Amino acid sequence: MRKNNKYTGEFKEMVVRKYLSGQNGGLITVAKIYGVRNVSQLKKWVKNIVKTQQVYTERLAEEKNYL
């Protein structure tokens, strides 16, 4: 029976950045390079991190409007 891996937030962010940079190929390739067993898990990381960055960017824009 396999043990579930617990990935740190830093690791997830680093892998997503590598994927988004396009330098290491697609999802499958990046997952293999960094030992992420499940490509769908990497997809979720990408979705969550991109969404979080969008929210952060929107908040910064709102703050600039108030200044």
Rank of each mutant, 00 (worst) to 15 (best):
M1Y: 07
N4V: 06
N4R: 10
K6R: 13
Y7V: 07
Y7G: 02
Y7K: 11
Y7N: 08
Y7W: 14
T8N: 08
T8L: 00
T8H: 05
T8M: 01
G9T: 08
E10Y: 08
K12C: 10
K12F: 03
K12T: 00
E13A: 08
M14S: 14
M14Y: 14
M14R: 15
M14V: 09
M14I: 11
V15G: 02
V16C: 04
V16N: 02
R17F: 01
K18R: 12
K18I: 02
K18Q: 13
Y19L: 01
Y19W: 00
S21H: 02
G22H: 01
G22Q: 04
G22L: 03
Q23A: 04
N24V: 03
N24L: 07
G25A: 07
G25I: 12
G25R: 08
G26T: 10
I28T: 14
T29C: 03
T29H: 04
V30T: 00
V30D: 01
V30L: 00
A31D: 03
K32I: 04
K32V: 00
K32L: 01
I33L: 07
Y34P: 10
Y34Q: 13
Y34R: 15
R37I: 15
R37F: 14
N38Q: 15
N38A: 13
V39F: 05
V39W: 04
V39L: 05
V39S: 11
V39C: 12
Q41A: 08
L42V: 02
K43Q: 15
K44D: 12
K44T: 13
K47D: 11
N48T: 01
V50F: 05
K51E: 15
K51G: 11
T52C: 10
Q53G: 11
Q54W: 04
Q54L: 08
V55T: 14
Y56S: 11
Y56G: 05
T57D: 15
E58A: 13
R59T: 05
R59I: 06
R59E: 09
L60R: 14
A61M: 08
A61Q: 14
E62C: 07
E62Q: 13
K64C: 03
N65W: 02
N65G: 03
N65V: 09
Y66K: 15
L67M: 10
